[in-house]
Design a binder for these strands. Sequence first.
DNA 1: CTGAAAGCGCTTACAG
DNA 2: CTGAAAGCGCTTACAG
Lengths: 364, 364
Amino acid sequence: LVTDTPKSDFDPVAVAKAWRDINGADRKATINDIAEMAGVSKKTVSRIINESPLVRGETRQNVKEIMDVVGYVPDPQARGLAFRHAFLVGMIYDNPNPQYIVNMQQGILNGIAGSDHELVVHPCDRTSPDYVSRAQAFIERQKLFGVILTPSVSEDETMARMLREAGCRYVRIASVSLDEEEHMLVTHDRHGARLAAEHIAGLGHTRIGHITGRRGFRSAVERQAGFEEGLATAGLTLTPNLIFEGDYTFQSGVNTAEQLLKQLPRPTAIFAANDEMAAGALQAFRMAGLRSPDNITIVGFDDFQIATTIWPRLTTIHSPVCDIGEQAARLLLKPDEASDTERENLLPTLIIRETSGPANSQAP
Amino acid sequence: LVTDTPKSDFDPVAVAKAWRDINGADRKATINDIAEMAGVSKKTVSRIINESPLVRGETRQNVKEIMDVVGYVPDPQARGLAFRHAFLVGMIYDNPNPQYIVNMQQGILNGIAGSDHELVVHPCDRTSPDYVSRAQAFIERQKLFGVILTPSVSEDETMARMLREAGCRYVRIASVSLDEEEHMLVTHDRHGARLAAEHIAGLGHTRIGHITGRRGFRSAVERQAGFEEGLATAGLTLTPNLIFEGDYTFQSGVNTAEQLLKQLPRPTAIFAANDEMAAGALQAFRMAGLRSPDNITIVGFDDFQIATTIWPRLTTIHSPVCDIGEQAARLLLKPDEASDTERENLLPTLIIRETSGPANSQAP
DNA sequence: CTGAAAGCGCTTACAG
DNA sequence: CTGAAAGCGCTTACAG
């Protein structure tokens, strides 16, 4: 006797608009509201949220339209409780360079944009004896989806073991591979340093110095090795008395450069393992009455802001920190889709500015 | 027939240890486990978690000991779902200075340490038309406990209104009060700039220039006003032709300083509204053949790293960014406990280094 | 392709 | 001072 409205006449948009008009902006729709409006079970709505293929096309269409109209977003808190993990990505770091941190954070945010995840930050201090257990408490308490580690914590095997044992997804960003491919994003510092060597050698320099990074940091090893490899290609070698150990700080650049200038005949070109030390070296040159590039060539590594705010502006190796963060986040979220071609775009590149010049113009 | 063990003989530690031995490290205790071990309802355990006074002392003692032994930590996800908010504090910012961001993050982390909260970051771009609605989506999706805003987003009334309407707790960090006390952490930039003026006037300078911050940023207004107030105290005024507008960047410091040096007689001292611009000015001096402090005095604001990596090192106004972040977080978590004395320790201070010298030695 | 039941680990509202 | 019931908004495991 009663004529049921045929399913094809069901107007999801009208239903959703009516709901929205009744409930106003104050009340957020839940999975139950959506299910009721669509005339399906909450399980079906759940399937659509999680992109399960096991839903009829028309059903999916209707439900999605309703979600759109009422602006439904599943509650990450509730999903997290049911999934037994939060929709949070952690960044664990100890690198003291603010610009590195901020760029990396931005990159990770770019990488998780569009997913339902947020970024929660966890700076730490490797010299603290309980720093691994604090990191463990952090990930277990919040049941993090996964974490991204930057140097130098990324190089710590104790930390990596803790993460494996805790069953926490992780990606380590490091200058060289230290783990299975799915857990690594390699920055190829060695390649970058090779570019610096080729540039310096190409300018005709033969008496070349190097200021290394902090001993024990893998990047310091890689950058020195790459630099020596690059020089070797040009038939040059780095003599031990022209290698000084810095610690990546401005002051260590000043100090080591002063030492380098005492070596006679003094070097006509220096490669510093980061911009900060290169800037320090430049200051030491100035105090010693030397000008770059006229009297001496200096090349840095990182291409952070300091490279362009000092004068003359620094020739350096650019490392795409932001893109690296983005790829690391992608790898963490979807380990299967990580493509090799994307990773190749993450190689360091040479940026030539005003601190490098030909050797013949630089009388010792 | 069976003798029940009297309650006072109940050994919570032994019970907890037994549980731990059976279940091992893989299984985390839940509120139900704790309740069962203690022989109380989960509601009682919940009361203890939330520090309700409505629990008998002995009961509380027993339950706490059990929690300790098994290392129980309540699941923030589950609490969040029941409480209808996450245990997450958001930081919303657009300040482009990496060191400011990192220091502020560290301060906030210090302020929330010991609470069960974590910090989730949300950089944004005020020039983007949907930046407020994106921030809104961020806080509503994650049901944030509250947010901390730094300049310049903290100065945006549209953003503040959105937060009020969304019912989200918030603290605005700004150079001057813009909201009710519970929502404000004031950095008193005006006071800091006054110190700069007193310092410069005290050195005997009378021909004084100022490089302002970006027009529209409240800090720029406050720093200029404070500087003029300080000069007025010494009977000095800032003449309009010695005021140039910068935008807080290094390059704008270079450009405005060049303009200032063209004014004749040229100023013998300049106050730049931040270190970045002061460093730029210093570079302009050098290119013009002037040396600081011998020929010209320059004072900055912020006391970021650049102040000590340039040479000569910059006299500047130190702003305790990290402490400010910590207090802002405290205020957000416990608005009632905010004390005025603590806030007073947050005032900017003068740091005298090598770029300021007496006026009489500085022949124009 | 779809759904009813039970559960994630907590809290609120109510009762005693 | 304490607890049994219902619920927060989702998912898993099972059944059809």
